[in-house]
Amino acid sequence: MGKEAQLRPKVNVSSYIHFMLNYRNKFKEQQPNTYLGFKEFSRKCSEKWRSIPKHEKAKYEALAKLDKARYQEEMMNYMGKRRKRRKRDPQAPRQPPSSFLLFSLDHYAQLKQDNPDWSVVQVAKATGKMWSTTSNVDKQPYEQKAALLRAKYFEEMEAYRNQLQGRKRNFQLKK
């Protein structure tokens, strides 16, 4: 007989989810004939969660830590399928940059020079704000350049695909 498929371990849940499950069970015991929709129940549950003291939350946090440890242990022993990334063909043409990326490349050095203590993320945010406030007339050169690069990319891709098909034909003929 073949090997049995191993099921992926159930993901660990947060302390709030543990509280919510417990609260739902208590609510059902206290009021068995009362039905609350999800929206109403979750509202009541979140209000209750905010109102409980820290020492009571601690027991749910301990449950969450135990659950996380269980999940990590099961994942260590899990031998299921793992996705492999498809390798990029080095001969394939690279996708062209967008008009925004071309704009960013032009303005990055100046922003970094003006603000040397900024991180890459801060510079990127500032560039995004600049792009959004830039008029369409000022964006036009970047969009035209991006369109030219995109057209060139599609031509290169077509040539690349034809080259691949030629290789496949030659390979099939050699068999």
Rank of each mutant, 00 (worst) to 15 (best):
I17F: 04
H18V: 06
M157L: 13
P116A: 02
R82K: 14
R50E: 10
H18E: 06
Q113G: 10
H107C: 06
K3V: 02
E40T: 08
A62G: 04
Q31F: 12
K28T: 08
V11L: 14
N25G: 03
G128Q: 01
Y153I: 12
Q122W: 05
Q165S: 12
K125N: 10
S135V: 01
R169P: 00
M157G: 01
D89N: 15
N162S: 13
F27H: 02
E56I: 10
Q122T: 06
Q30V: 07
L36V: 10
K129S: 13
T127H: 01
S15K: 13
F171G: 04
N170D: 11
A151Q: 15
K125A: 12
S132Q: 15
R94L: 12
Q30N: 03
N77D: 05
T133M: 09
K174M: 11
S135P: 03
L21D: 08
K48H: 15
N162R: 15
Y23D: 07
L173P: 00
C45H: 07
Q110R: 10
N25E: 12
R50N: 12
K54G: 02
S98Q: 05
P90F: 00
P96W: 01
K54M: 09
T34W: 08
F154M: 13
H18Y: 10
K175W: 09
R88E: 09
E61Q: 09
I17V: 11
F27N: 11
E61V: 03
F27G: 02
N77M: 08
V123C: 07
A147V: 02
T133C: 04
R8D: 01
Q113N: 12
H55E: 15
P97F: 06
R161I: 12
C45W: 04
K54N: 13
T34S: 09
K28F: 07
K65V: 08
F38R: 07
N136P: 05
E74W: 06
R150H: 10
N115E: 07
V120K: 15
F171M: 11
Y35F: 12
F171P: 01
A151P: 02
T134M: 12
P116V: 01
V11D: 02
N25A: 13
Q95Y: 05
Y35N: 05
R8F: 09
K84D: 04
A124T: 08
P93L: 09
L149A: 07
A64Q: 05
E73G: 00
D114R: 13
V120M: 11
V11E: 10
K152P: 00
A64F: 00
R82E: 08
P32G: 07
F27D: 10
K125G: 06
